[in-house]
Design a binder for these strands. Structure first.
Lengths: 206, 206
DNA sequence: GTCTATAGAACGATAGAC
DNA sequence: GTCTATCGTTCTATAGAC
């Protein structure tokens, strides 16, 4: 499985500022509640100046939603071709996924919640990218079943379940809670690989 | 654990119509994108007439968010006192939760997504209700561990994980897919009780 | 690339007649 | 309980000077 993601058009540093400010506001208040005025104010320019960088509010949303859906996934999609120990590989992917998503929680949360405000064409494009990752995990689990390193009756469902699990973390995790995000990621990876997927521990084949 | 939910104030049938229409619109377009005009039109009255039934748009949101967070949870919170076989009880709860949420997917999805548009006071109230259910499941898993019917290293995390799993279903399940919602619910309940929570199958204690 | 100024529509909510 | 009428605000987006 090889990445075929098309790159975003090159944008200037101002566009990046706008994107980041908008992302934060969308996260806090929701796409529909955030006006172009509020975005401009957060950047320190006037509303009309935004249109020198983006043609519309929807394009701002699309730009950062595309970024978050190509950055992590694009850099990890090849992991499914790895010939190594599948439970170990998936364990590491889950930990990295959880930590990355937390470090980019504004973009990730806002992106997932506000995705439906994309134009139909953009929504199709983003959905296809997400689908690739989801299918990759499902196929990976199925392959692990055949190898006997996973014992999971429903690989496709398990892939959806584990993605919902780990994407849900950002809605309730608190940095001042009992666990760091790295500790939580580790415990979730255990819960998923050995629990949900029934991975056999090393030297524990039965 | 006994229900102490306070009832919603009695409202007329018109208010119920308004609530249902608003729920559907919030689900489709998001709270911030739906105007009072659109809600009124969907019911077939004028905007100003809405204010004979609700004092504000936020009150419409609050009313249905409160309803969905008291209806199912209120009717199932006593299940954690049940003295029967814990894996069986949790299995049944999960199936009922999934099926109920799918049958009320508009309210559930809109309610979960738009909850943050509630006033701070209302948000606190709703969060507390949800927390009660979550804590109930966590304590139930921990109790099952002590009985030896679950083998789960992290009961509190597992409760959060399973709730994110089953609440995520409504975002991707399609009625024209390979499974009915009842079949899916059954498979998820298996995945959770025997996978995630390490329940021992009858006569399989080891 | 930023600004001032503004178009034209939609927003939540209210007053008061019936 | 519904209506007409409207208030004051905010919305996305554009035109045109600098």
């Amino acid at each position: 499985m090889t990445s075929t993601m098309s790159p975003l058009p090159q944008r200037g540093p101002r566009a990046m500022e706008i994107e980041m400010a908008a992302t934060r506001l969308f996260y806090e208040q929701g796409y529909g509640q955030v006006g172009m005025r509020a975005i401009a104010e957060a950047v320190g320019i006037k509303t009309s100046s935004l249109y020198n960088h983006f043609v519309s509010k929807e394009e701002i949303l699309y730009t950062f939603v595309k970024r978050i859906n190509t950055d992590f996934i694009g850099r990890h999609i090849d992991v499914f071709d790895d010939e190594g120990d599948k439970p170990t590989i998936l364990h590491r992917l889950i930990v990295e996924h959880i930590v990355y998503f937390w470090e980019h929680k504004y973009e990730m949360q806002a992106g997932m919640r506000e995705m439906r405000n994309l134009s139909p064409e953009h929504l199709v494009e983003i959905t296809a990218i997400r689908r690739t990752y989801q299918d990759g995990i499902g196929a990976f689990i199925a392959a692990g079943n055949k190898q006997g390193v996973f014992r999971c009756a429903t690989p496709r469902l398990a892939a959806l379940a584990l993605l919902d699990m780990i994407n849900g973390i950002d809605t309730w995790f608190r940095e001042d809670g009992p666990l760091t995000i790295e500790e939580l990621a580790e415990q979730y990876a255990e819960l998923i690989t050995f629990g949900l997927l029934g991975a056999t521990r090393n030297g524990d084949k039965q």
